[in-house]
Computed example of a mutant assay.
Amino acid sequence: MRLHVEEQYDHEDNSQTVYSFTNTKAFSPISVISTEVLEEVFEFAFGMSFGGQGYHRNHRAGGIDRRRNGQIFADTFQGKLAEFALWDFFISNNLEVPKPDTEMYEEGIWDTSDFEYKDIKIAVKSTKSYGQLMLLESEDWNDEGLYIPNLNTGNELYHYFILLRIQPFTQSILLENRCLFNDIIDKDSLKELIMQQEYSYDIPGYITNRNLVQLIENNYFIPQGAYLNVIHEKNKMDADNYYIQTGHMHPINRLIKILQNL
């Protein structure tokens, strides 16, 4: 099911393209993320941003916005937290997968995949608790659904893509505390801010690599510069993305059964 698309006028009477949800899922938390995980993910995200210990690109594939360290921290923290949450979910379902990698790689060195289980590669995507889309930046994927940065490495094929939603949303926390756009920050103050939160997650669903190819073939696509739901700067798409709505994704328990039967 596609997003609804219409032209609306902004406050300067300019026509803008707005995409609206048509098939949603309510946030239904599965579990609370432990303090130990929060601490480990904090150290990783801080090192990859303010700490300057690893490389994390300061823009999205095809994006025009250049992210500050606060934004890189928030995105890195969110993404790695989702990996740990899924790892815990897998373990609780008797799927023995390696613990998420917190190695801080230099530029040009990539993870082969977020998770691998019996030669099945799984990508993890995350969004806010009220998010309703899995977004895949179009410049990262070719028409065969292969991950372009990993082409010719043997690691370009992801078999499954899982979406997790995290509450609260780290970007919002940093924005409310006026440090999202910082390039320097006191580490202890930021850690205190993060550690006083209670993070929970849900898993609205997953898609297969074949589903991704179908999205590409059928042009399930939101262009750079379009808006989601309302005309507001925070809802403006920074890069071209393929999309699928949460209400159209496969239930996670189906994938768990598939993996358990391998």
Results as ranks from 00 to 15, higher is better:
Gln214Arg: 03
Tyr19Met: 09
Ser49His: 10
Asn58Asp: 11
Leu164Ile: 00
Ile162Asn: 00
Thr246Ile: 10
Gly51Lys: 07
Gly47Leu: 06
Asn93Thr: 07
Asn94Met: 05
Thr35Asn: 14
Glu36Phe: 02
Ile148His: 15
Thr35Leu: 12
Ser138Cys: 13
Thr170Leu: 06
Tyr227Met: 13
Asp240His: 14
Tyr9Arg: 13
Gly54Asn: 10
Glu6Ala: 06
Tyr160Trp: 01
Val37Lys: 03
His56Met: 08
Glu144Ser: 12
Met249Cys: 08
Asn94Lys: 07
Pro223Cys: 05
Glu96Asp: 15
Gln8Leu: 12
Glu176Asp: 13
Leu180Thr: 01
Arg178Leu: 09
Gly52Asp: 11
Thr127Asn: 01
Gly62Val: 01
Leu157Ala: 08
Phe77Met: 00
Glu39Asp: 03
Tyr105Trp: 13
Glu192Asn: 14
Ile120Asp: 03
Ile72Val: 15
Phe44Ser: 04
Ser15His: 09
Ser92Pro: 05
Gly70His: 01
Tyr19Cys: 02
Leu193Pro: 05
Tyr9Asn: 10
His232Trp: 06
Asn150Asp: 03
Asn142Thr: 10
Asn235Asp: 06
Gly145Trp: 00
Lys191Ser: 11
Arg254Val: 05
Glu139Phe: 06
Glu217Leu: 15
Glu12Thr: 07
His159Ile: 10
Glu233Gln: 11
Gly108Ala: 04
Thr17Cys: 03
Trp141Phe: 10
Ile91Lys: 11
Gly108Arg: 02
Phe161Glu: 03
Leu135Cys: 09
Thr76Val: 04
Glu139His: 07
Leu175Tyr: 12
Pro29Ser: 08
Asn235Ser: 09
Glu198Leu: 15
Leu163Cys: 01
Arg57Lys: 12
Asp183Glu: 10
Phe115Tyr: 06
Ile120Phe: 09
Lys128Glu: 15
Glu36Ile: 03
Leu255His: 06
Thr17Lys: 06
Glu156Lys: 09
Phe50Pro: 03
Gln167Thr: 13
Phe169Trp: 11
Gly79Ile: 01
Phe221Ile: 02
Glu137Cys: 09
Lys25Ser: 07
His250Val: 03
Asn14Arg: 08
Ser113His: 14
Phe89Ser: 03
His11Cys: 13
Phe84Val: 07
Gln167Pro: 08
Leu212Met: 15
Gln245Ala: 00
Pro168Ala: 00
Lys80Leu: 02
His59Pro: 06
Ile252Gly: 00
Arg2Cys: 04
Ser20Asp: 06
Asn177Cys: 13
Glu198Trp: 13
Thr112Lys: 14
Tyr9Leu: 13
Gln197Pro: 02
Asp101Trp: 00
Gly247Phe: 00
Leu228His: 05
Gly247Ala: 08
Leu136Met: 15
Ile207Asp: 02
Lys128Ile: 15
Leu146Arg: 05
Phe77Ser: 01
Tyr55Thr: 02
Gln260Arg: 12
Pro251Arg: 07
Thr208Arg: 02
Ile216Tyr: 07
